[in-house]
Design a protein around this nucleic acid. Structure first.
Lengths: 251, 251
DNA sequence: TTGAAAAATTAGGCTCGCCTAATTATCTTA
DNA sequence: TAAGATAATTAGGCGAGCCTAATTTTTCAA
């Protein structure tokens, strides 16, 4: 029963997650309104999604996400969020428009491309002190990040050491995820250069822009647990040392 | 009869243009092979496209593009080409993969976003001498390019004056389109910062990466005529002064 | 010039994602 | 607690875009 989700189904899943986060429950009417379709269409879609095990649903009940559905929705959500951020922060697209466009593009972006786009985003957010053309520089960073370069990274340009997030305001504190205390909230700013680990992080849906709560601080032996868009993610200590976050003050 | 083209139809149109350019004629079987569908599907699609006036086709004949179809196909082609270049040149995606991905993304990229992406591509290809964070710099360039900045562009960073195309090899000569002689071939490298004119150029499908022949050199009063992917494009003198091209040596 | 091979078309059918109209279930409140 | 309002479902249908199998048309070569 491991059917691939169609584009439309992905949209439904994302909407359901949104609704549950916002209003605690997802009801047919609201889903229909958000997706801009009629209610019968939603009923039918939910039936299908429940048959493939992404949602739990029987007639006249609220729609809920299964574990599988939650994971999937959560991934989509993060991807979407990042894409929107890219469009808004980098390309200066209007926020409303970016939201819609991100939804559409999302379905067609391969994992590698997303990964590279994240690197580009981070690259552009970093401070540079060099007179070389940016593209050459970016390509070099790509190679270093992918571990494909035999050059000594130290002699190359290390954008990882030298970040300068443009969104950083005076009041936000940037630190590593591993440094946070239990219960603290934050937003991902950057992912480290390690390909293998970065991929794993991205696969779980933790992308620049994602907001989270540190539910359980881990140790060398025990993983960190981070809740993000209603989904629990486990991360080993080593990974949390590669994730730069902006701490949200409880205020 | 000005129906919007579905994604699938857009693909068909692009394939037809490709085939006509490559093999002089587009036959059902080839279209089917390239699109990965069966021949009856193609027949049906062609019938529809001919009803809406994009292709000229009757049973058992080769498929041809009408003027309308050619313009549309040509635009799609350029867009696709640019997108592929972006994926390959900037994000270092494998060429095969980039081609497919460009096709899929293409349909969902709004015109503004494409425009901004072109600017980003050009920005990254430009030489920079500064220690400011790139993103800030890029956003500033965006504003200048859009004419939204009251700042004196001269005191800001002028990436237009300072290009450094990474693809430039020793043998290629870069110049302005207006400087070309009749009959010369080339490839678009950059489009100038003037929003209004740039938009018009982009709308006609002349994007960075497009290859063309200068068919007729114009004057102040008479437009330049450029053929690109089998489509004739007229450009005023002022526009040709804003288009940087790589000249292809006839060898 | 004719007949086999190749190309194209017709016929009929499928799924997906949507729709409207009609009906039924649930909620709310007087 | 019953009736009117609201929400959801069933039934039936539509178009897009694809398919296979069968048939027809065109091409090409002996």
């Amino acid at each position: 029963m491991n059917a691939a989700l169609s584009e439309s189904q992905q949209d439904y899943l994302k909407i359901v997650l949104d609704l549950i986060n916002e209003k605690k429950v997802a009801r047919i009417k609201e889903i229909a309104r958000r997706k801009g379709v009629s209610m019968p269409s939603v009923t039918e879609a939910m039936r299908k999604l429940s048959k493939t095990g992404f949602v739990q649903y029987s007639t006249h009940e609220f729609v809920e996400l299964t574990g599988k559905g939650e994971t999937a929705a959560h991934r989509l959500f993060s991807k979407n969020m990042f894409l929107k951020n890219f469009l808004v922060d980098v390309l200066d697209i209007d926020e409303q428009v970016a939201e819609k466009e991100a939804c559409e593009l999302e379905h067609h972006l391969r994992a590698t491309t997303l990964d590279r786009l994240i690197l580009l985003y981070q690259f552009l957010s970093a401070r540079q002190q060099t007179d070389r053309p940016s593209l050459t520089l970016f390509r070099k960073c790509l190679r270093i990040a992918e571990g494909l370069s035999e050059e000594d990274p130290a002699c190359g340009f290390r954008f990882w050491e030298n970040r300068y997030p443009h969104r950083q305001s005076e009041s936000t504190v940037h630190t590593l995820l591993s440094k946070l205390e239990q219960g603290q909230r934050g937003q991902i700013v950057m992912l480290g250069p390690d390909t293998e680990i970065r991929r794993r992080i991205i696969d779980r849906g933790l992308l620049p822009g994602s907001r989270f709560v540190l539910e359980e601080k881990g140790t060398a032996g025990r993983p960190f647990r981070v809740r993000c868009d209603g989904c629990l993610i486990e991360l080993e200590l080593i990974a949390t040392n590669m994730i730069e976050v902006a701490v949200e003050q409880p205020n």
